[in-house]
Amino acid sequence: MPSIKVLAEREERGVRFTGGHTLCAGCAEPMVVRTVLHAIPDPVVVASPTGCLEVATSRFPGTAWNVPWIHVAFENAAAVISGVEAAYKALKKRGLIDKRVRFVVCAGDGGTYDIGLQALSGALERGHDFLYVCLNNEAYMNTGVQRSSATPKCAAATTAPVGDVILGKPQERKDLTEIVVAHGIPYVAQAAVSHLIDLANKVERAMKYEGPKFINVLTTCPLGWRTPRDSAIQQAKLAVETRYWPLYEVIEGRYKINYKPKERVPVEEWLKTQGRFRHLFRDEQGKELMAQIQAEVDRRWEALLAKEQCFGGNG
């Protein structure tokens, strides 16, 4: 399993994602990208859809990518990597390439949960050999914090504002990880930027499998979540501790929860640290909404425990 030391050594030998990009100070995205890329010892080709990561790392004529990287559009990263992987297979068959090359998508939640869902589903069904990492910061951050289907209920977003009548996003977030599980691919996991070694381990385990692999990483956006710039790690950690964002894996259909918080920390503890939920702490209506959020967190956690119970073990 890759330790911090191993990751640091690999980075020293050949940094794959450099500084000098224009992601915000305190943004969690580069930590996730560096961890993922250095957890894979083989050469990699990366595809990213349009979004913060893409815009901030590829401004012509500079680039933050020291590995081959491609951006095509917002909704098609999974289709693009399908083509890259297909070309790799074709060139390998013709003896034009002999190296083992791995294929990775680093995409936002908008490019994954919403506009890119069809391309993702298609690529998963076709069984391309690639790892898809969703840098889930729970909104369209690049374009100014608009809601996505990953945005949590009640969070303020610019297209789901806190108004006199409607307080933030009325709908619950989509459970994309479970939708991906339903594709029956060999490896699916949830991770968080607060648990980087867990993330590195997941990437390493994932890459042992041939076929599509998917990791949904909770990736703090201090700007959109309205949290202090030095809080990214703490934020994600609280999301895990409150069971809002369970760390788990589904390997060949078998569920494993990687971390079970000993105490039941109310989700309120996480919500209260973020400006995007501030309106929930004003009055009775906010309390009521918070109770609904808690109930859904509990329901999903219980469902996950039950799945682990039924479909757990090492097989």
């Binding site: 098609n76 289709a79 399908s82 297909a86 070309a87 069809q118 298609g122 076709r126």
Partner: peptide
């Protein structure tokens, strides 16, 4: 592929590859 959007996207990926 599952759509023409993806058909051309895969072609672009493969050609760039």
């Amino acid at each position: 592929v599952e759509s023409e959007h993806s058909a051309l996207s895969a072609c672009v990926g493969a050609a760039a590859a």
